[in-house]
Design a protein around this nucleic acid. Structure first.
Lengths: 235, 235
DNA sequence: CGTTTGGTTGAGTGCGGTCAAGCCCTGTGG
DNA sequence: CCACAGGGCTTGACCGCACTCAACCAAACG
């Protein structure tokens, strides 16, 4: 099921944080030029194909990651072997915060679309954050953001009918986007996000398409009828 | 529905952190005697009756809280008005972490049992954490703990059949406890934790009682058959 | 080409939601 | 003291949504 692609194969260069295009919205946003000069270890960039694994649950958390483009899912397994997606990460999101606490990773991190990430040593962040109130604060903000997401998944994506959940997921995918167009995930993954089966997800998406709430403008690219989806989401 | 009890009525004294009985497991565990001397603002203790509200979603987050005894629920409302409990807080847990970021509270915090909390100004923690790597680290650990809880609620308490969810909730309530005895919540609250209706929760609990998985030793105090509940929880 | 993988659709069933009634306990007021 | 009301828990009857199992189709791929 999981294509195993070692990160080595996915290496795509060394990052230049100082001139990073995401500089203003990224974890290191608050750092000064002088701080960057204290970064001796290299910060590498990786490209992940859909299905590629960034890290496994239980792996030693030596690194943290910033998503540059694309989407990854964070997956946890249940005692009975079934899986549940507990969060997704997109551009500017940080992955592996638990590495700050010298903890192992808590999830499987798997790319859903073509994805680029920057990797940096957790030790580096630990050191910088001691002296750097801005980074310290930014870290807390990241944790809080993850917590907000987790709460929202519980209240919005794990509550109500399947129709409502699918609608809420769709709306969530285009929030804070300029366009209402979005690339969907596999029905299986969407099901694992919503706590419903693949078939139910497929049926619901198909129904939305028939009702014109969802228009496929290109293969696997959909335009959303936001107002009507919102009606369904709130019921 | 919500009994409104102002915190003023619930005031039960001024805390003595240095000699706190929870000192070793609490947010301020890492502080030195010298640090405490820099705390000028008073740290107050409060007693909450079941149903009493500690803070409301949207209130200014000027304070953070440590739970001394008892249990509180953190509640979020859905667009349609129904409520979902996203977490519970028990002894040594910290409430209102979002106040660190000068954010408003994100939940309703309501006591489920008789509860005692300590209240301290968020500003105090912000200041202390600048200079105090231990506290800094402890804060991150608290955030991570909350996140772990959130993930577990999603995978354990919002997935699977109602029987499984109820069993998992019960097991969760006695984890890391010396005894397998525990005080349950109202069926309505348990339902709001599990994403099922009050009736389904009631039926399931009643069935567990008939099957001897749950023995009522005193009014609303239950002894759990952990091994068999675990069997149900895992399938 | 056949094979595989993901999406869709169908038929049947059962779990859990809904609506409603009844029970027990507590508190309240006549 | 009893009558009554109210809230929380339980139980019943009914129904419908979503799960299960299965077939089928289209696109991708060797």
């Amino acid at each position: 099921m999981t294509k195993t692609v070692s990160l080595k194969e996915a290496w795509s260069g060394e990052a230049n944080c100082l001139n990073c295009s995401l500089r203003t919205s990224v974890l290191f946003a608050g750092l000064q030029q002088a701080d960057f000069e204290h970064i001796h270890e290299p910060i590498d960039q990786f490209s992940l194909k859909p299905g590629a694994n960034l890290y496994h649950a239980g792996d030693r958390g030596d690194y943290m990651f910033t998503v540059r483009t694309g989407v990854l899912k964070l997956v946890q397994y249940l005692p009975d072997g079934s899986q549940r997606i507990v969060r997704i990460a997109r551009a500017t999101d940080v992955l592996g915060l638990e590495a700050m606490l010298e903890d192992n990773y808590h999830h499987e991190a798997v790319a859903l679309h073509a994805t680029e990430v920057c990797r940096f040593p957790a030790r580096l962040v630990r050191e910088l954050s001691q002296a750097n109130p801005g980074l310290h604060r930014e870290l807390m903000a990241r944790w809080q953001r993850a917590l907000n997401e987790a709460d929202a998944w519980l209240t919005e994506l794990s509550t109500g009918s399947a129709r409502q959940r699918v609608a809420r997921l769709l709306l969530r995918l285009v929030r804070d986007r300029e366009t209402s167009e979005c690339q969907l995930f596999s029905r299986e993954d969407m099901g694992a996000m919503l706590g419903v089966t693949t078939e139910t997800t497929s049926r619901t998406i198909a129904e939305f398409k028939r009702q014109g709430l969802l228009v496929e403008t290109a293969p696997n690219l959909f335009l959303l009828d936001i107002p009507n989806l919102r009606r369904i989401a709130e019921d």
